[in-house]
Design a protein around this nucleic acid. Structure first.
Lengths: 342, 342
DNA sequence: TCCAGCGCCCAAAGCGCTTTCAATTATGTA
DNA sequence: TACATAATTGAAAGCGCTTTGGGCGCTGGA
C-alpha cells in the first residue's frame, strides 16, 4: 500500500492525503479524519526512503562506534547509548551507528555525514586538538560534541562536565586530609577529559607547593585490569603514594584488588577517589569499602545531547551551545586521614 | 555533485555511469576507468536515500535496543554490539538502532521492519514462547535470532549456545566434587537461556536423585547488586548450599562479595561456577579467586550473526540456519571439593 | 552479400514521497 | 450584484538513483 493507492482509494489527490498526514493546516478537518481512518484500516505506512529522498530528512542521528577486532568494548559507551536512546524513543528517532576502526574515525564520521543517512551527528571520545572538529565545522550538518577538545577554540556545541574542577576539588579534599603523596590513574593520555583531570590535580597540588610525579601518573584504557597494573606499580614505588585519584570506577575496581592483595586497607593506608559515571554495573556505594567519588551521570549526558540534537533537527527552539556540568563530590569510606609517617 | 552532473561532466549517460560504478559487465573497461577517475576527482558519493528508493536495499541491519528511564543498561548488550560492529564495518553496513520500551518490543520491531530502513533484523533477549517469532515469520525480512525461544518450534534461524549442556556439565563437575546442596543464580525467569540453564542443572541433579530447591533458585537482572542479594539469601538458609551455579560473571561479582562479607572462603566453603560471556570488563581469571566458568564469547556470536545477516542480504551463499555452539568448561580456583559435613 | 549476435551505450520510466503553483469553490465586503 | 479573499483541493514537477528496453556499429558464419 502506497500513497497513490491510498489516495485513489479515498478519491483524493496524493497531495491532499500527504498534507493530511503531515498535519498541514490547509486541509479540511473532515477530510483529515477520513484519511486518518483509512490509514488505520489499511495499515498504510509511508516509505521512509521516499520520504527521505523528498525531504532530505532522515529522522535519525548518527554516531561512530569505535570498534575493531581486539578493540575493547567500553562500558561507558553502552551507558551513554542508553541515554541517547531514552530520549530518541520519545521522538521516534533512531540511531545510525557506523562502526569504524579507531584509526579511521575522521573518515568514518565524514562518510556518515555525507551518506545522507543522518540528520545530525553525535561525537564522543574527544581528544586534544581533535581533527574531527574542523571537519565537522565544514560539514553543515548539526552536531553536538560530548566533551571538549583541549587546545581547540571552544566554538563548537558541546556538553561536558567540569573535569578539571572535579579533580581539583577531589585533590583538595585529600590535601585537607593531610595527604602529600599523590598518584593519578587516568584514561588514555590523548583524551580531552584525561588532560583536564590531570590539570585539575596539578593545579590543586601547586597551591600547596606540591607536584605530581611522572611515576605516579598512569594513562591507560579504563579497564579493571589496567587499574590493577597501575596500582601495583604505584605500590612498589619507594615512597609510595597514599592518595589516589582515579578516572573511573572501572579502574578503581582493579586498583582496589591490588590494594587488597598488597595487604593494605582502603581508606586507611590508601585513600582513593574515583570519578563515577554512574554505571549501573559499578555502584561506588556497593564496593566493599564504599568509594568516595566525583559524580556525573553519563546517561544523563546522553539524554541531554539527544535532546539538543533532535531539537535542532526539528527546529524546536534554540539551545545553549555549550553546557558545562558541575560534578558532585560525594564522600564515602575510601578516603581518610593520611597515615602517620613511620 | 550528483549522478546527473557527473555524467554530464563525463559526456556519458547516467545509465552508463551508474553501471560503471556498480560493477556491471557491459561497460567498457576504459570507460569504467574514466568514471572511477572522475569520482575520485569530484568526490562524488551516491545519495543513499535515492539508491534505497530505487533498489529497496538499505545496507543496514536493524535491532531494537530495550531502554527506558530507569532501565538498566546491560553490559552484555554493549559487548554484543561490538561484535556486530566488527563484522559490519568490513562490509560497509551500518546499524539502525530503534530504542524501545521493553514492553513495546514487538511493536517496535515491527515498526523497524516495515519502516524500510533496514534490510535485515537482529533479535535478542529471547523469551519462552517469544511473541516476536510469529511476527518475524510473517514479515518477509531476513532475520537471525540470538538465542532460542523455549516452547516454540525451532524453525527459525538462530545462533545460540548450548545453555542446557553448559549448566549440565558444570553441575556434574560440582557433583563429582561431592557437592549435594546446590543453588542457581539465574537471569530473569522469562528469558530462554535462563530456562535452559535451569533445566541443565535439574537434569544433572536428577541423575543423582537430587532436586533443585525453590529457595535455592534466584531469577533476577544480571547485575552485581542482584548477585549480592541472592547470595545473601542463600547463605541465610538453614542448610545452606555449598555449590553455586551462576548465570553471569556480573552476578558472580556481587555473589562473591556476599561470600566474603560472610567470612566464607570461595573455592573451599563455597564452590561457584559462573557463565562467562567473555566481557572485557570482567575476566574470570582476574577475580581474587579465579573463577571456574562455562565460556562462550558473546562478541564472537555478534560477529557470526552479522556475517549471516549481511551474507543473506548480499545473497552471498547459503548459511546454516541454526547454529548451536558448545561452551567450554574451564576449571579455576573457585571450585573445590565439598566441605566436610560438620 | 546478409543477417544474427555481440559489445556498448542511451533515453526514459519508474521508486514513493513532498511541495510548488494553480484552480475551484465558498465567504465576505462594498 | 460584483469582486477581492479565504478555504480546499489537485496536477505535476521534482528528489537522485537503478533498470528496462532499445539502438547503433561491427564481426563472422552461411
Amino acid at each position: 500500500m502506497n500513497l497513490k493507492q491510498l489516495s485513489e482509494l479515498l478519491g483524493l489527490s496524493q497531495t491532499t492525503v500527504s498534507r493530511a498526514l503531515n498535519g498541514y493546516p490547509e486541509v479540511n478537518e473532515a477530510t483529515r479524519e477520513r484519511v486518518l481512518q483509512a490509514v488505520k484500516e489499511t495499515g498504510y505506512r509511508p516509505n521512509k526512503a521516499a520520504q527521505r529522498l523528498a525531504t532530505g530528512k532522515a529522522g535519525s542521528i548518527g554516531l561512530v562506534m569505535p570498534t575493531a577486532p581486539g578493540h575493547q568494548s567500553d562500558v561507558h559507551f553502552g551507558e551513554f547509548l542508553a541515554g541517547l536512546g531514552e530520549e530518541a524513543v520519545r521522538h521516534d528517532f533512531h540511531f545510525v551507528i557506523m562502526p569504524a576502526d579507531p584509526d579511521d574515525e575522521v573518515a568514518a564520521l565524514r562518510r556518515l555525514a555525507i551518506s545522507g543517512n543522518v540528520d545530525a551527528l553525535f561525537v564522543a571520545y574527544m581528544r586534544g586538538h581533535d581533527p574531527r572538529l574542523p571537519m565537522l565545522k565544514s560539514l553543515a550538518i548539526p552536531y553536538v560534541v560530548h566533551g571538549r577538545s583541549f587546545g581547540s577554540e571552544p566554538d563548537y556545541p558541546f556538553v561536558d562536565i567540569d573535569n578539571e574542577g572535579a579533580f581539583y576539588d577531589a585533590t583538595r579534599l585529600l590535601l585537607q586530609l593531610g595527604h602529600t603523596r599523590f598518584a593519578l590513574m587516568n584514561g588514555p593520555m590523548h583524551l580531552d577529559f584525561a588532560i583536564r583531570r590531570k590539570n585539575g590535580v596539578i593545579a590543586a597540588l601547586a597551591e600547596r607547593g606540591l607536584t605530581l610525579d611522572e611515576d605516579c601518573t598512569s594513562h591507560a584504557l579504563m579497564t579493571d585490569e589496567q587499574g590493577l597494573l597501575a596500582m601495583e606499580r604505584f605500590l612498589q614505588l619507594p615512597d609510595r603514594p597514599t592518595a589516589i585519584l582515579c578516572s573511573s570506577t572501572v579502574l578503581a575496581l582493579g586498583a582496589i584488588r591490588a590494594v587488597n592483595q598488597a595487604g593494605l586497607r582502603l581508606g586507611e593506608d590508601i585513600s582513593l577517589i574515583a570519578h563515577d559515571d554512574v554505571l549501573p554495573l559499578l555502584k561506588p556505594e556497593s564496593f566493599s569499602v564504599p568509594l568516595t567519588t566525583t559524580r556525573s551521570s553519563l546517561r544523563a549526558a546522553g539524554v541531554r545531547i539527544a535532546q539538543r540534537l533532535i531539537g535542532t533537527v526539528k527546529q524546536a527552539g534554540p539551545f545553549p551551545d555549550q553546557e558545562l556540568w558541575k560534578t558532585e563530590l560525594i564522600v564515602r569510606a575510601s578516603t581518610g586521614p593520611a597515615p602517620q609517617q613511620p
